[in-house]
Design a binder for these strands. Structure first.
Lengths: 139, 139
DNA sequence: TTACTTGCAAATCGTTTGCGATATA
DNA sequence: TATATCGCAAACGATTTGCAAGTAA
């Protein structure tokens, strides 16, 4: 497993981590690739994928395996929830503290060993919400 | 959009819907395909995908776009939560009533128009939990 | 009859991986 | 120097799609 290997902090790995910590969006692998490429022009998408995986196994970043077709990555390690715009697909943080009591509630009604939970809200971001009203009005 | 088309209830569509309502697991498209194929031997995987999409747009089934690499489908339309086994990947229902208050909480702290939320628990199913203890003990 | 659907196969999308070259510790 | 890592390209798994033939209304 990666965590037990002898890891090297390569320039690529370093820059990927920096860029991910710099943004508060929740970029997909190819969005990370785009950003990192501005600083390291010859980096490959495969390297980005490999390092995102390693960094998340090290616990330095978080892999978001929520809805949508693409996986997303988060440099913010504190437990928090997300909201996704159903229209443009953007993902933002929700300033809501973690509801660990949800897990307790489940423990009392299941035989599963509960490890965690993921909660995602779906909605329209302010920008898309505005656009949509405008268009509806126009009809 | 499919919902506005003139839909035909073909045998394929019918059987897919029946099979999905029959099970209380949450099969992926190819699992549905396997089941349906027992009754319609010449059906193609593409047809299954197309119909699952149409049926979910009609609101006759639910598309589960949660974590994991494969999308899953649910014939149970009532709002409920799921728990996924981190080891074997199986998905089961959680007998917990919907926490709509979560959405209210988010509405008060965001500009998004909240449409819904999805909550998934992660854990070890009783079967995998047992297996894991056994293996650990053996070491 | 008509146009929605099908089966089939090829295409697409996101992600992973094999390999020989490179560079870090 | 040794080997983790890289860039590249091919492979992969899940899903989508183009097309000619089939079929429900």
């Amino acid at each position: 497993m990666a965590a037990s290997q002898n890891l090297r902090m390569t320039r690529q790995r370093q820059v990927i981590l920096e860029e991910l910590r710099k943004v508060n969006s929740h970029p997909s692998a190819d969005q990370v690739y785009e950003r990192v490429r501005r600083r390291l022009r010859r980096i490959s998408l495969g390297t980005v994928y490999r390092n995102l995986e390693i960094l998340s196994q090290l616990g330095l970043i978080r892999k978001l395996d929520l809805g949508g077709t693409q996986r997303r990555f988060d440099g913010d390690l504190t437990t928090h929830y997300h909201i996704r715009c159903i229209k443009c697909g953007c993902v933002e943080d929700v300033p809501l503290e973690a509801r660990t009591n949800l897990e307790d509630a489940v423990r009392s009604v299941t035989d599963y060993r509960i490890i965690g939970h993921s909660l995602e809200f779906i909605g329209l971001c302010p920008r898309c919400n505005k656009k949509k009203s405008a268009r509806t009005k126009g009809r």
